[in-house]
């Protein structure tokens, strides 16, 4: 009866695992647990437990990442490209396809998600407007799109700081040369703006590409 009792015990626990203790069969066929079996004991091996149940299925995969991205010169991801327009540009004897792109950029200094325009040469696009005729005083930028668009002149990034409203402008600062009447403090082209300035504009705060950790030129990458 005692042996039966022990047998029952073993069936309950024997398959569960091994630690420091071992099971030993005595000369009287009793089973005892000891640190090590005594001389006249016979070590008693317990069959390993049954195979465990199959694992549960893996978690659902993550949602795919938007495949077309804009990256900077160092390969840093600027954000997903949400607008691409391709231009064929003659480069030496070859035609090269270059995109104009808008990427969604995010950074605390930008106050949330904004659009950053990229021209065919990989430079950020920029156009800011001034009530003055010489690109001095407060700058305003267009604010009539679906989301804020930043404008970049030189290394300076103009970020809309509030809701847009109609405004008048007499000069504009651009980040390319064309009919310049002067140079803005940020190295941009200043030229007269004859307007009217259609759509809403917003006053702008500024940060820099350096603060955003971005280096020009930018380019689009795909899958």
């Amino acid at each position: 009866m005692r042996a039966l009792f022990l047998g029952i015990t073993l069936s309950l626990f024997g398959a569960l695992g091994a630690d420091a203790a071992v099971l030993c069969k005595t000369r009287g066929d009793a089973l005892v647990a000891r640190e090590t079996c005594r001389k006249k004991d016979i070590p008693f091996a317990v069959e390993p437990g049954p195979q465990g149940p199959a694992g549960s299925p893996g978690a659902k995969g993550a949602t795919g990442r938007w495949p077309v991205r804009v990256v900077d010169a160092a390969g840093n991801d600027v954000g997903p490209a949400v607008y691409l327009e391709w231009y064929l540009v003659l480069s030496g004897p070859s035609l090269v396809g270059l995109p104009i792109a808008y990427a969604v950029a995010q950074h605390p200094a930008l106050g949330g998600a904004v659009l950053l325009g990229i021209d065919v040469q990989g430079n950020p696009t920029g156009a800011v407007y001034y009530a003055s005729s010489d690109c001095t005083g407060p700058a305003v930028i267009r604010a009539d799109g679906f989301m804020p668009v930043v404008e970049v002149i030189g290394d300076t990034v103009f970020v809309p700081s509030g809701p847009g409203a109609p405004a008048a402008a007499s000069s504009e600062g651009l980040n390319f040369n064309g009919g310049c009447s002067g140079v803005t403090p940020r190295g941009g082209c200043c030229r007269p703006f004859t307007g009217p300035l259609s759509g809403a504009v917003a006053e702008a705060t500024t940060t820099t590409l350096g603060e955003l950790g971005l280096t020009r030129p930018f380019h689009a990458v795909g899958p």
Binding site: L16, A18, G49
Partner: peptide
Amino acid sequence: PGTFGDPG
């Protein structure tokens, strides 16, 4: 429990 024998 699990002191004796290997796990499955």
